[in-house]
Amino acid sequence: MGNILVFAEIQKGSLPKSSLITIQAGKEAASKLGGDVLVAVLGSDIEAATQEAAGYGTAKVLAVSDAALEHYLADSYAAVLEQLVQANQVTMLVATSTAIGKDLLPRVAARLGVGMASDVVEFNEDGTLQRPMYAGNTVATVALDDDIKVVSVRSTAFDAAQPGDRSAVEQTSVSLDADATKLQFVSFNETQSDRPNLTEASIVVSGGRGLKSGENFTTYLEPLVDELGAAMGASRAAVDAGFVPNDLQVGQTGKVVAPDLYIAVGISGAIQHLAGMKDSKVIVAVNKDPDAPIFNVADYGLVADLFKAVPELTEAVKKAKA
């Protein structure tokens, strides 16, 4: 087995939790399949992130600093990763299925001419992988038949890496051909929020169509979210209706979360929504319809009108904390 290269995303100059999860997934792959873990950090001003990445006991950190890499762009980043794979005897490339991981890894795989497995939840000892398919209705055992395997992992299936021995840091330069610099970054319109990150929070409170409006999210749901110090999520129906921003969608085609506590409010529990939250440790559902499918996965179901129950719950949490 050759080396395992993990791609560590940088956000605002440092490594988000998803990158520590990627490093941990790389370590788990290495412990089962052999090989050293190398961490790739890319960007234009990455000294701090490189030092941070070197704190997790991996064999090496490969730092690629270049003005052309200031913003993440699929074409340039894919070209760099391809070169790192080729130059470092890499037999497996790993990233987490974040928006960037999903955009980037298939492009690298195709540049290398190899297949890819998305959203892997487990590395098996025999080299096969486990991944969900059909909105989580099945778990598949899959095999990648190339010498270089490209794998994105689901963040909920791995822990964050713990700090370890310092890694050696290698500064690498790469060349970018014309095909790798066609994309231009124009702008980033950040969703303003002081709340924890949806995919990192230990408590998530999600609202659905049952909330009926964006104002009701503010009036009814947000006080509960903030009283619990939780992240806010939503069903597709709530996002489509414009109640909340797009990136709060939980589900098959949105974010996958697995917090200690997930509270679904006014959400029916369609399979596509369940695909994004059913691995949460404790699930609470608040719904006025006793037959709503969400109750089939909820540990605790409150059959009630949310407009009455949620303010009461917020008060009760406030009291319990006092």
């Binding site: 297949g115 096969t128 099945t138 598949a140 909820a298 540990d299 009760a316």
Partner: peptide
């Protein structure tokens, strides 16, 4: 290059307790 060797249904989660008041839930 990616082949599916086997499909399994996911581990089923059982529905839990249903309550009617916030006090019981808390």
């Amino acid at each position: 290059r990616l082949t599916v060797q086997m499909l399994e249904p996911p581990t089923k989660k059982e529905g839990g307790k249903k309550v009617e008041t916030v006090a019981e839930l808390m």
